[in-house]
């Protein structure tokens, strides 16, 4: 079992490193003129510089070194928590991220919790419901939720709850009230996705022969669904948890922009707009780390929920 856990950790680290490398490659190798791109972000127009001035500027941002050299020094820095300096804001990226982390973490956690609860409740209810019209309505609901662009939902909410009813603040990060609309906006999408996967999973599970066995014992439908359906239906849905959390984090980019929340998402939007490469690299790597971490947790939890997996491991260990 220890070997299994260690193996998973190592695998997660490799994936994380690879994701970092891919992002680095995209940002440093894809542009036709990376120097102009990065200096442009600092407000320097490369065409107007003399060769000497250009060289000084390049040296200042470390752009005169070979790409491989830059890659390793960046990677070394990352391992030490040093993400380099923002080009447009002339500040260490780590500080920028530290300043902006709070609101995004609060938003992500609220939204993730909300979407888990809502998604599961919806799927559970939909598969328990026997009255066809209600059931049809519930099963169609997620399809709607996943179809509306988040910026549209956000604008609609602002229009309704802020401007028409005046219940909630349209922008800002102050107080719990400012969290309501952004988390609803995000979780509408993620809850819909979760519900879609879960509904399907429930559908498959409740069609399994062991459900017939359970019903033949004389158990009520509610008992059958709770005791025999729920856990088995949850298992396949667990695998998309990482994707859902990733989605929650990236949704923050759009949502924070609309609600003018000064979080990481807003920072990402500003960084891309300014083509501030080090900031973008740091934020993408951070998001990948969250994704890899959630998947790692799911991987480690899975054997606890599915006895078949544990057994498989034990066999490995004993042979």
């Amino acid at each position: 079992m220890t070997r299994y856990i260690l193996g998973r950790f190592a695998q997660a680290l490799v994936v994380l490193w690879a994701a970092y490398t891919v992002t680095f490659a995209v940002l440093y190798l894809l542009p036709s003129d990376p120097v102009a791109l990065q200096l442009g972000a600092a407000g320097i127009e490369t065409d107007k510089l003399t060769p000497e001035q250009l060289n000084t500027a390049m040296a200042q941002y470390g752009l005169d070194r070979p790409v491989l050299n830059q890659y390793f020094s960046h990677l070394w820095g990352f391992l030490h928590g040093d993400f380099g300096d923002s080009i447009s804001k002339q500040q260490p990226v780590a500080d920028l991220i530290g300043d902006r982390l709070g609101p995004t973490v609060a938003l992500s956690i609220t939204a993730a919790t909300l979407s888990l609860v809502a998604g599961m409740a919806l799927a559970y209810l939909a598969s328990y419901m026997r009255w066809r019209p209600a059931r049809l309505f519930l099963t169609r609901l997620p399809s709607f939720g996943a179809s509306f662009p988040q910026f549209f939902i956000a604008l609609l909410l602002i229009q309704l709850l802020s401007f028409n009813l005046g219940w909630l603040p349209a922008t800002g990060v102050k107080g719990w009230k400012s969290l309501v609309m952004p988390s609803i906006t995000i979780s509408l999408l993620t809850a819909s996705m979760l519900a879609q996967v879960l509904m399907r999973s429930f559908d498959d599970t409740l069609r399994q022969p062991y459900i017939v066995t359970a019903r033949a014992k004389g158990l009520s439908r509610a008992a059958v669904q709770w005791r025999h359906g729920f856990r088995n239906a949850l298992l396949p849905a667990l695998t998309i948890l990482g994707v859902l959390v990733g989605l929650t984090v990236t949704s923050a980019i759009v949502v924070e922009t609309v609600f003018s929340r000064n979080g990481l998402g807003k920072l990402a939007q500003e960084a891309v707009l300014a083509q501030d490469v080090p900031v973008v690299l740091a934020i993408v790597s951070l998001a990948a780390a969250v994704f890899v971490f959630v998947n790692l947790v799911v991987d480690l939890l899975y054997p606890l929920l599915d006895p078949r997996i544990v057994q498989g491991r034990r066999k490995v260990a004993s042979s």
Partner: peptide, 8 residues
């Protein structure tokens, strides 16, 4: 897949 598609 580890890099959320919007960030990619």
């Amino acid at each position: 897949l580890a890099i959320p598609s919007l960030l990619m």
